[in-house]
Design a protein around this nucleic acid. Structure first.
Length: 433
RNA sequence: GGCGGGAUUCCCGAGCGGUCAAAGGGAUCAGACUGUAAAUCUGACGCGAAAGCUUCGGUGGUUCGAAUCCACCUCCCGCCA
């Protein structure tokens, strides 16, 4: 082992990665030996998003420390839906849809942990494997018998649903924590897994699993939760105007991903460096000290953006993101070469082509909505009203809305076919004739 | 099964026959200030370039006029069984 359990836990704590922990001293001693650790990911969409990244990285950190990570994909639990701290009952997705998502999430999770490093190579499991054939009666007798409804309804994670006027909880969702408990007991039996990691909203479910493993397997298990990620301004972490920040490059391009990190508030950036990078605490402290003593813009966001993007999208993804960023945000974008434009397109800068017909008939508002730049024409109208729409660097106003044909004529294009449109300060789109 | 309560624009939430595209807050977008931050201030915030068009769970009805009243339906919640 590279570190003692105590060192390992202290490291995590120094990064503020520990919200709750069970059996403090015992867990530390337990981790002096190589152990198996699991974290579950339910397929609630076709991709994981930033919220999943912290526990996933904790799994990686534990693997680096010599433990065996087990990534559990919730093919079964995804069919049910976790009610923990959710305000409303959620609608169920079809088994076919979930099965498709399971495959995608398995692949994503697998990027982050090492499957080829000897004794502690990672494992991916699917809880559908031990629940699909389980009969309802067996489940009620073998699992349900170990859970007390009294304690389940007392749990904070479902209290809101039980107390709150106008909401309720179905038996299906209420039973969720039994399934998760079963997962822990099952992984304990199959792989001798003794630690579960999860978000702090998972604490209730994890504790349930620890109890079940003790009762069914006479095993002592532990839980560790990572804190809920918050932002200093109180808005939800991991959202942009386009919605969630996904790990799938098809859903959130490496460029957008990079930009997300670059725009993190100063008040959050050092915290996020601890969560989302593998830089040492000393390095992060040094960055913070340097920023504090320097004037102007801190360097932390740039470091965070590069580290996180490389971690999720690899060096090539980072390179593409940097190429676009440099082209758009430093210097004159009109200086770009023809090859540069082609590269931007390949690198994933949002692009679309223009047809003569559309240009003749549609106002800019409609053209930009069609291109996916904005959700509603109103945003364009608003921006035009403030002269903050730029076509190849030239500001356009409300009067230009109807003259798309002229604005996007070949004469005005760069290299006869490219238009780089900027809406507001940061939203770019490449149009091609 | 019985009895009550509810469904409003992304979210929360007012409205209870005309003055309602619908208060207020949050989120979001644009502008100023900046550092592609934060905070603050300004504007926008159903769709539409506009004329105008379509909304307040659904379907019918009463009325000159309905988110607001009536009937039925759907879904949700609570209490009791």
């Amino acid at each position: 082992m590279k570190h003692t359990g105590q060192q390992l836990i202290q490291q995590l704590q120094s990064r503020d990665l520990v919200a709750q922990i069970s059996g403090d001293q015992e867990l530390q001693a337990h981790l002096d030996q190589p152990r198996s650790v699991y974290c579950g990911f339910d397929p609630t969409a076709d991709s994981l998003h930033l919220g999943h990244l912290v526990p996933l990285l904790v799994l990686k950190r534990l693997q680096q420390a010599g433990h065996t990570p087990i990534a559990l994909v919730g093919g079964a639990t995804g069919l049910i839906g976790d009610p923990s701290f959710k305000a409303d009952e959620r609608k169920l997705n079809s088994p076919e849809v979930i099965a498709g998502w399971v495959d995608k999430i398995k692949a994503q999770v697998s990027q982050f942990i090492d499957f080829d490093c000897g004794d502690n190579s990672a494992i991916v499991a699917n809880n559908l494997d031990w629940t699909a054939e389980l009969s309802a009666l067996d489940f009620l007798r073998d699992v349900g018998k170990h859970f007390s409804v009294n304690s389940m309804i007392a749990k904070e994670s479902v209290k809101q649903r039980i107390d709150r006027e106008g909401s309720g909880i179905s038996f299906t969702e209420f039973s969720y924590s039994l399934l998760q408990g079963l997962d822990f007991a099952e992984l304990n039996k199959q792989y001798n897994c003794t630690l579960q990691v999860g978000g702090s909203d998972q604490w209730g479910n994890i504790v349930g699993g620890i109890d079940l493993a003790r009762r069914r397997n006479q095993a002592q298990c532990f839980g560790l939760t990572v804190p809920l990620i918050t932002k200093s301004d109180g808005t939800k972490f991991g959202k942009t105007e386009a919605g969630a920040v996904w790990l799938d490059p098809q859903k959130t391009s490496p460029y957008s991903f990079y930009q997300f990190w670059l725009n993190v508030a100063d008040a959050d950036v050092y915290k996020f460096l601890k969560y989302f990078t593998f830089l040492s605490i000393e390095e992060i402290d040094q960055i913070e000290a340097d920023d504090a003593s320097a004037q102007g813009r801190p360097q932390a966001q740039g470091i965070l953006a590069r580290e996180a993007t490389a971690l999720v999208h690899g060096q090539s993804g980072l390179d593409a993101a940097l190429r676009i960023t440099n082209a758009l945000f430093s210097g004159e974008s009109n200086d770009l070469s023809e090859q540069d434009f082609q590269q931007l397109h390949q690198d994933g800068l949002p692009s679309s082509s223009l047809s003569g017909e559309d240009l003749a008939q549609k106002p800019l508002t409609q053209l930009f909505v069609d291109a996916g730049m904005v959700k509603a024409g109103r945003e364009v109208k608003d921006a035009l009203g403030r002269n903050s729409v730029f076509i190849n660097g030239i500001s356009k106003g409300s009067g230009d809305n109807m003259s798309g044909e002229q604005l996007f004529s070949a004469d005005n294009a760069l290299y006869g076919r490219f238009f780089l449109v900027r809406l507001g300060k940061k939203k770019y789109h490449l149009f091609e004739l």
